[in-house]
Structures are given as C-alpha cells and as structure tokens.
Amino acid sequence: MAPDPHAPLLQVRGLTARYGHVRALEATDLTVDRGELVAILGPNGAGKSTLLRAILGLVANTGEVRSEGVVLPRADPVAVASAGIVLVPEGRGIFGPMTVAENLRLGAYRVRDRREVERRLARTFELFPRLSERLGQTAGSMSGGEQQMVAIGRALMADPKVLLLDEPSLGLAPRVTAEILETLRRLNQSGLSVVLVEQKAPLALELAVRVHLLSLGRTVAVISPDQVKSHDELARYYFA
C-alpha cells in the first residue's frame, strides 16, 4: 500500500499488550500528526513504556498501528523502525562499549550513502555540539546527560518521522533535563513529530499539544495541557 501523505504520521488503534497473561495495555488509541508533540503521563506502572514498546512490536500486542496510512507489522521492530518510528527506550539503550561515533553511525544503519550520513551527523552536532568533541569516547563512559544526548542523537541519525522518547529525563539533574527538553522543543519547532513519556509532568506539559493520561493500562483522558493544569484532582495526582 502506498503511503497517504495526508494520513497521520502515527495512528494507533485498539493497541493491547500483555506480558504472559498479564495485560499491561488495554485498547489504547493514539494519533500524532505532522509536527505535533504528544505527551503521555501516568503513574509508575501505568503502561507508558509498554505503549511505546508495543508500537515498535517489542512486546506481544494486538491492534493496529499505521504510519501515513500504511499498516505496520505487530511483531517486527526492524520494520517499524525502518518506517521511521524511532524509539529512544527507557534507560537509553546506548551501545556502552562502543564509541560515540559508532553509536551515531549505527543510528543510520540503513543509510549507505556517505554524504547523507555526513549531512545527518552535521545536523546532530548542531543540536548537540558536545557530541562532536567526544566522537572517540566510549559512550558508556559519558555522563548521564551526555549518554541521553547520544541516544537522542543516534535516533535522529535515522531521520525519524516520529520520535518516541521514554522518560529522557530519568536520573538526570534538573539543569541537564532542561537542556534536553529545550533541544526537544527546538526539534519539534523545526517540524519533528514527537511522543514524549515523562514523569516530570510540568516539563512535558510546556511542550505538548495533547496529553494522554494513562492509568492501569488504560487511557483515562486525552486533554489539552491547560486542562491538566486547571484540573485540581489531576494536578494533585500527577504533580504531588
């Protein structure tokens, strides 16, 4: 099926995921249009990571995931990633023993054209100048914030249609988190579509056009960021 340029970049319908007999995600919908940043909030164990992993096909799941109208297979992460749905997983998933340069190069694994790789590298260094100074360093020896930059930089090397980020601020100092989120804002403003899972709700709300609230594997509400802030109970729940 040919891609439909008017269909959403990512459209998830009735996605259900399970670990063995435990259902961790129930019939979830999610739509991301061009240039949108959608935030996913919810308490620990709500199923946020499971949602992202199910979209990629990393956990057993049923339902429908489309990109530009094209149905993506449900158990083939390579195919989903190749379609431009790129996940920066919880814990970053960098290749620790390899150098920064190698990590970045592998992000563009499917690209064999040297000049295209160079172009993408240049764009990545514009966002993360620090990476260009550390190309020969083993990624695992970098600070947490730098490792997150490697992870996001590597994902950008794939030239994603939709960038999925699972708690990029996890374990980072506030100042480093702010730096990372500022980069995300710039990326989003330049037109990149993003799905952002965050525990630190206030940070995510500043960037999002829509917020999905997850609880116990279900979407309990899809609202605008303002609604979250003005909703007393939610505010207490998520900002406590």
């Binding site: 990629l56 990393l58 992460p77 390579v78 990633a81 190749s82 790129v86 996940l87 997983p89 998933g93 960098i94 290749f95 620790g96 023993p97 390899m98 190698e102 190069r105 592998l106 992000g107 694994y109 499917r110 064999r112 590597r154 794939a158």
Partner: peptide, 22 residues
Amino acid sequence: LTGKAMRACAIDREAALLQAIP
C-alpha cells in the same frame, strides 16, 4: 558497518533492533 552492527547485537540486541539492524 556490518561488523559494528554485529557488535551492537552482542551488546544490546533490543537496542540493535531499534536501529533497524536486522
């Protein structure tokens, strides 16, 4: 690149999948 991809698979198979490494 193939050699690096093989090393990547050895380090973290799931992360390799996420880079569309077969």
